[in-house]
Design a protein around this nucleic acid. Structure first.
Lengths: 353, 353
DNA sequence: CTGAAAGCGCTAACAA
DNA sequence: TTGTTAGCGCTTTCAG
């Protein structure tokens, strides 16, 4: 019910402009083929009628949909992992500029079993609902990427193909090591010396990449790193506990803690509060992601911010190449994040105190 | 390039099963029409071929897409307004269960002008890209809802039609007054008496609704409300400043502050930290939204949590009715949020201390 | 219960 | 430069 009034079709426009349907189609898709006079007449008819090509018909005819599938991964409760939010916003805009829209991939629902992401991708693929996917699961070492590749589905990844040297797909990633290096250098420049690393899993490649930035900066400054590595599951609780242990038992208390995520960084903040220590004054703390929480938690958590707008436009650029007429070699793009300094490393900073 | 192998069509299945194409179509859409034996034979062919109906063809034929448009509103930097994130996740699932997918509405891009949300809706509508919309702009008194209604576009709103008594669309909303009432009662039960209200705009209806919950609880307990209302723009900075003024100049310092949003609540936390006061011990603080930041900011911000999973499923239910064969009256559903108690009102609570 | 025919609106190929 | 023809894959009549 309440459907909008009958939408005008190509034939309506053609009738009004006194041309054939094909000419209208050309006016829309290949305007350069028309004589100027004809084009403006057709254009006028299009405007008057408010004509917009019917997507279903176009999709059926061309075999494309100008839709890109993305699996939305919500922020887990109790974490600061809110990068998806900013990424989606950026991607919607970048895709729009290229004439694409985003369709959210819903996990497959095999009755009462656990949700199955691959079934979600598979359904969309089989029903030719999307032209391609943007996948963000590479951070998690999940099988989606490999599955899509083997399925020969077009996709671009946000995240390097860590485990797969033979990967033949395009990707865009953020240089975590460079970001953490800058963060560590910032702490060193402020006079910190005993700077710990707090990661979530020593064996995870993303974690290890980020940690390498800390190591590089420490070594470059001639500072030791031995015995200064801690890790905790990527939850505030676990990080609070791990940070507490570091703060309490170390023979020398840390000057500062560089964390692999904002969630971990906020855990450190908790541990400091519990001990009556002040972040930024007594101990410097740095996170990674520039999450909403990092921005607003007192006294502000200094954090490494990925240029997600650039990530989105690079991804869309790769998508266009991938879906374009000529075959292209896959590309990999590494973008450099920037450090956002707040109260947790610089008490004079942050707008709130 | 790299397109998946040619997808099987209805004709392929028909040939394999030794029936006509329509019979396969019936097997998919009206299985009850087929004899059991035929059905299972067709079903076997479908499974063997991995057949899934082509969406474009189906869309063209039926005039529907089983796609729902949603405009994604990202968390503004520097705020805790992360409800969209949880809502999207819930909506993707609820829609999937009803056979729908979400398509994100991109703001219109009129060259270099400011983004135009209505153009985004209009494009999708004109090109018959979606069957309906879910709109969340009602909180903001924005014109999208009215525009869609006047355009006779099918949609369901998250948020009451505050300004439009004559609205003829279905909506689902959260009872902010009830949530804030519960929060205020919780503070009163814990012995607080001088409880301030901090909103973002006295004239905003959502703000006023939530404030009314505070008033109700205060009056019911025989506590005064006069002179205990403050307001600040919905940013941490503004809230910090406003809360500071309240804390410094009041003849009696507040026992507690009930806030219309988590962003405001976190501003209060900042003001407390700056004055060496402890949230939950010296002053109780309550927010609204149960954002990621509320969950993890020390010492945990007690907050009113909307049942977004229920909101999503009610919205999808309304959508199904709206798009169903028979005309239906619009419905309005009001859901009750629940209070999540954390350290900012109960020092013994929260997992982090 | 199953099969034949028509056509949704569009664009690619070709003809004029 | 413009018009004609065909058909993408599906579902909806309507016969059988």
């Amino acid at each position: 019910m309440a459907t909008a009034p009958q939408a005008p079709t190509l034939a309506d426009v053609a009738r009004r402009a006194g041309v054939s349907r094909q000419t209208v189609s050309n006016a829309v898709n290949n305007p350069s083929l028309l004589r100027e006079e004809t084009l403006s007449r057709v254009q006028a008819a299009i405007d008057e009628l408010g004509y917009v090509p019917n997507r279903a018909a176009r999709n059926l005819r061309t075999g494309t949909t100008r839709l890109v599938g993305l699996r939305y991964i919500a922020t887990p409760d109790g974490t600061a992992n809110t990068a998806m939010d900013r990424f989606v916003k950026a991607l919607v805009g970048a895709a729009r500029d290229a004439g694409y829209h985003l369709m959210l991939v819903a996990d497959g629902d095999d009755g009462s079993e656990t949700p199955d992401p691959i079934k979600g991708y598979d359904d969309l693929l089989r029903s030719t609902a999307v032209d391609a996917f943007v996948v963000t699961e590479t951070f998690l070492d999940q099988p989606q990427t490999a599955w899509l590749a083997q399925r020969r589905a077009p996709f671009v990844a946000f995240g390097r193909p860590w485990g797969e040297p033979e990967a033949r797909h395009s990707w865009v990633d953020v240089d975590g090591a460079a970001g953490v290096r800058a963060a560590t250098e910032h702490l060193i420049a402020r006079g910190h010396q005993r700077i710990w690393w707090l990661g979530w899993s020593p064996s995870n490649r993303v974690d290890a990449d980020r940690r390498s930035g800390w190591e590089q900066a420490m070594h470059a400054a001639g500072l030791p790193t031995d015995g200064l590595v801690a890790s905790a599951a990527d939850t505030v609780e676990a990080a609070t506990e791990a940070a507490g242990a570091v703060l309490d038992t170390a023979d020398h208390r840390p000057d500062a803690v560089v964390c692999a995520t904002d969630t971990l960084g906020i855990g450190v903040l908790h541990a400091l509060v519990a001990r009556g220590l002040r972040a930024g004054t007594d101990v410097g703390v740095v996170g990674f992601d520039d999450s909403s929480a990092a921005q607003i938690v007192p006294p502000g958590l200094t954090s490494v911010r990925a240029p997600l707008e650039d990530v989105a436009s690079e991804i869309v650029a790769a998508l266009r190449r991938l879906l374009g007429p000529e075959p292209v070699e896959p590309t990999g793009v590494l973008l450099t994040p920037r450090l956002v300094v707040r109260g947790s490393t610089d008490p004079s900073d942050g707008p709130f105190l």
